[in-house]
Design a protein around this nucleic acid. Structure first.
Lengths: 192, 192
DNA sequence: GTCTATACTGTGATAGAC
DNA sequence: GTCTATCACAGTATAGAC
């Protein structure tokens, strides 16, 4: 792999673990076996490194969101989306972890703004449920919980289970979490 | 409230939003209307400020964990714990958010180590389920998802729902997530 | 209890040699 | 493409006046 790509991967990993502001160019350079200046030869600035690290994942998530045909309150469409979403999480766990955890503190960074827009856009596909507090929480827990568990697992669990097993379990759990959203809000609120 | 307590509250808020390393003593001082030196009069160091900010919450969570009488695979005991846990999250959302998101990058900080020990200790109360990947994920999603949604809600939702409503919804969702853990692992693995 | 002044270190970034 | 040298600045922390 090229030095360019190496630096991007190192930066992504460090940003996710130690945070953007907690990661210095010096540290990235040391891991890569280079000097700070060499890092800044490949990327114009630290922010450019962040864009390179998580930008592609944001773009991919955007294409997933753009491909949603209609409301995600439809059970079939939601099933398709959940599989795509879980695959995305598994493929980009570091990027998602980084965005979920540090997005709020990185306002005015273009790539973070793009990601924030995506979350807002995605939530509109569950819009019939917006008025319901519990449904709002279900959506958030599915998103944040799945993102958290994928990055935290490496710290607390000694053995890494097979990816297929994790994928299947995640689809099950997220589907279960979002299942109540398929019923109409009015029907549920009267049921309470 | 005293200046001492003011500084602790400001620090907690900034640490949670901008991150520990992303928050300078200068910024804390500005918000408090003081100089950096005055901040360091009240707290010996930035790390001491972190300890003051999240230490009490860690201690309270420890007392909750210590009060667990036996395995949390028992449905009644788990119900009691979940209510205590949700109340804890609601009361200390910033502290939990800070720990969940930045704990990994703050190794060797005493207060973070204490919190990490707690998570490990807590997971032993679900220990019969440890061998099961899905149960492991359920535990993590409940913990990380609930923590995420409570801190993220302030950013994405314009209106803040009543606390009682949030509490009830969280208890429902977390109970639902952890419900499958009550059955024995052997019974479930054969069912697969 | 708060301030100014200061010391020291680390940071992101640039210039220029090789 | 990588380096050393250098810069301006922000970071944590200390000393001492008020």
């Amino acid at each position: 792999m090229s030095t360019h790509d190496d630096l991007r991967d190192i930066a992504l990993n460090e940003f996710a673990v130690a945070g953007y502001s907690g990661t210095s160019l010096q540290r990235i350079a040391e891991i890569a076996g280079l000097s700070k200046s060499s890092v800044l030869y490949h990327y114009d600035s630290k922010e450019a490194l962040l864009e390179a690290a998580i930008g592609p994942a944001i773009d991919q998530m955007k294409s997933i969101v753009d491909s949603i045909g209609g409301s995600l309150l439809d059970a079939d469409r939601r099933g398709v989306f959940i599989e795509q979403f879980v695959d995305f999480l598994l493929q980009h766990r570091l990027e998602v972890h980084m965005f979920i955890n540090q997005g709020p503190g990185l306002e005015d960074v273009p790539v973070i703004d793009r990601a924030n827009d995506l979350v807002v856009h995605l939530s509109t596909f569950f819009s019939s449920a917006v008025s319901n507090t519990e449904d709002h929480l279900r959506f958030g827990i599915a998103l944040g919980g799945a993102a958290y568990v994928l990055s935290a697992k490496q710290e607390y669990s000694l053995e890494a289970p097979p990816v297929d097993e994790v994928r299947a379990a995640l689809v099950t759990i997220v589907s279960e979490l979002l299942a109540p959203l398929s019923t109409t809000p009015s029907a549920r609120s009267t049921a309470n």
